Amino acid sequence: MLVLTRRAGESVVIGDGIVVTIIDVRGDGVRIGIDAPRSVKVHRAEVLDAVKAENAGAAVPDDAAEATAAALRSILPGPAAAPSPTQSE
């Protein structure tokens, strides 16, 4: 990890198109501005971690998914019930 000391108004350039500028320093908080291309995703780590945890909690375990698929196969018509596109009437 690169550690730098910057003051309000000073910037750090990352790569060819990302500029991080220190906007304000108050107590133990720092306001930063990030100028980056739209193609670069910028997220706060705690929000990204919360989204990942929520997504993991919403995932269906494999055994439950297989049970659901088996139940659906028993009530939905299978491929044999649908006419083949090559069949003529």
Rank of each mutant, 00 (worst) to 15 (best):
M1R: 08
L2I: 10
L2N: 11
L2Q: 14
L4H: 10
L4A: 08
L4D: 04
T5L: 13
T5F: 06
T5K: 02
R6C: 02
R6F: 01
R7L: 10
A8T: 08
G9E: 02
G9R: 05
G9F: 07
G9A: 06
G9Y: 03
G9K: 05
E10C: 10
E10S: 10
S11R: 09
V12L: 06
V12D: 02
V13M: 09
V13A: 11
I14F: 01
G15L: 01
D16Q: 11
D16P: 00
I18Q: 02
I18C: 03
I18P: 01
V19G: 05
V20N: 02
V20R: 00
T21W: 03
T21M: 11
I22H: 03
D24L: 15
D24I: 12
V25M: 10
R26H: 03
R26C: 00
R26W: 08
G27C: 08
G27R: 12
D28W: 07
V30W: 03
V30C: 13
I32R: 00
I32Q: 01
I34G: 05
I34K: 06
I34S: 07
I34A: 03
D35A: 14
A36P: 00
P37K: 00
R38V: 11
K41C: 15
K41S: 15
V42I: 10
H43W: 10
R44P: 00
R44W: 05
A45P: 06
E46T: 06
E46N: 14
V47K: 13
V47H: 10
V47Y: 09
V47D: 10
L48E: 13
D49V: 12
D49R: 09
A50H: 08
V51C: 07
A53M: 04
E54C: 14
N55L: 15
N55C: 15
G57T: 04
G57L: 13
A59N: 06
A59Q: 13
P61I: 14
P61C: 12
D63P: 14
D63T: 12
D63M: 11
A64F: 09
A64L: 12
E66K: 07
E66V: 15
A67R: 01
A67K: 04
A67Q: 05
T68E: 14
A69K: 07
A70P: 12
A70H: 05
A70F: 04
A71M: 11
R73F: 08
I75Y: 04
L76T: 08
P77D: 03
P77G: 00
P77T: 02
G78D: 06
P79H: 00
A80E: 11
A81E: 05
A81Y: 07
A81G: 08
A82T: 14
P83E: 11
P85C: 04
P85Q: 06
T86N: 13
T86Y: 09
T86P: 15
Q87S: 12
S88M: 15
S88W: 09
E89D: 15
E89R: 15
E89W: 14
E89I: 14
